[in-house]
Design a protein around this nucleic acid. Structure first.
Length: 320
DNA sequence: TCCCAGGATCAAG
DNA sequence: CTTGATCATGGG
């Protein structure tokens, strides 16, 4: 008796260094805890993620072969089996998500003589700014990150997906949960959210924002094309959204590259390096970064953040 | 037990 | 416009 073994319709394509604007360190980029969406899952040399692309759930994995400057990125992806996605669409989605068109060579050149900053360029070479591809998801993740470790807000986001997101099947037999929609969350009470995800007091903010979006009292899409200042003012109206969370959303979600989220680490290192430890407020620090670095402010924040954490720029440390 | 985690809000000074 | 307490919750 013949048995038909269905072959999983796994598709594959590559990026080469010609597709990328400068160096790339895929591992550092993906594992640098950027506040845009839950961290992609490391599986050996590959990094896996699931997203909807034009309404179709896609599961893909990416891996880099070669060096930071001479490399190939291989991409493998599958869908449910009955749906298909265009390879071209996925490629441009990944280009956006991984910041592959950002001109890193120009960035390094433009600030090569900016001493404190340029000293990070060697060890962090190829680190790129990731962008979320779902504005609601980006905003919720940014809210979850407040006063929380990256590990913990990622865990909470995964619980959100598991409890309230749509479950999708893939042709390899696996299934996953998408990030929930505003409708999925708006019907819940804060107490329910707290019980199922342990997100604590952030539940009130998550539900408020979800309901506003559902009721069309809030539309995130236009914020992409607003000026940075207008978009910031609109976000600060939201309960539970302050300057740092708003900047995270503006940078990682809405793609405003001048947004520079100032957390405790950035505040320490920027006031230490550029303000000679003078006491200034966090919004003042953010404004300084925007004025000094313009559309590279977001990248500067990314590089200084990882530099600060790598060298253990702790509270009690002094900059001399 | 206290402190911290890529903070925000509110009330007082 | 600054400071301090409070907010949930898990982990060191």
């Amino acid at each position: 008796m013949m048995q038909i073994i269905p072959r999983s319709p796994m598709c594959e394509f590559n990026f080469t260094e010609d597709d990328v604007n400068g160096p790339l360190n895929l591992q550092d980029t993906i594992l640098s805890a950027q506040t845009s969406e839950p961290e992609w899952v490391k599986n050996g040399q590959k990094y896996e993620n699931i997203q909807e692309l034009n309404g179709t759930p896609v599961k893909y994995s990416v891996s880099q072969k070669g060096s930071v400057d001479h490399f190939t990125i291989s991409v493998q992806y599958i869908t449910s089996g009955s749906d298909t996605v265009s390879q071209k669409d996925l490629k441009s989605r990944l280009e956006q998500a991984l910041g592959l068109s950002d001109d890193l060579t120009m960035f390094y050149k433009a600030f090569s003589s900016d001493k404190p900053l340029s000293s990070t360029f060697t060890s962090l070479r190829g680190l790129r700014l990731m962008r979320g591809t779902n504005l609601y998801e980006s905003l919720i993740c940014s809210i979850l990150s407040q006063n929380n470790s990256a590990k913990r807000w990622n865990g909470i986001a995964r619980l959100l997906m598991k409890h309230y997101g749509r479950q999708v099947q893939f042709s390899d037999g696996t299934s996953s949960f998408l990030f929930p929609t505003p409708q999925d969350i708006a019907r819940l009470t804060p107490r329910q959210l707290q019980r199922t995800t342990s997100m604590g007091y952030r539940a009130k903010s998550v539900i408020t924002v979800s309901r506003m979006i559902l009721n069309k009292d809030l539309d995130l899409e236009p914020l992409i094309n607003h000026t940075y200042e207008d978009a910031m003012d609109a976000l600060l109206e939201l309960y539970g959204v302050g300057p740092k969370v708003a900047d995270c959303f503006l940078l990682y979600g809405a793609g405003h590259l001048r947004a520079a989220p100032v957390d405790v680490w950035i505040h320490r290192i920027v006031t230490g390096l550029y303000f000679r430890r003078r006491k200034v407020s966090r919004p003042t620090t953010a404004l300084f970064l925007r004025n000094r670095f313009g559309n590279w402010a977001g990248y500067v924040q990314l590089y200084l953040f990882h530099y600060a954490r790598r060298v253990g720029f702790g509270k009690k440390d002094r900059v001399t």
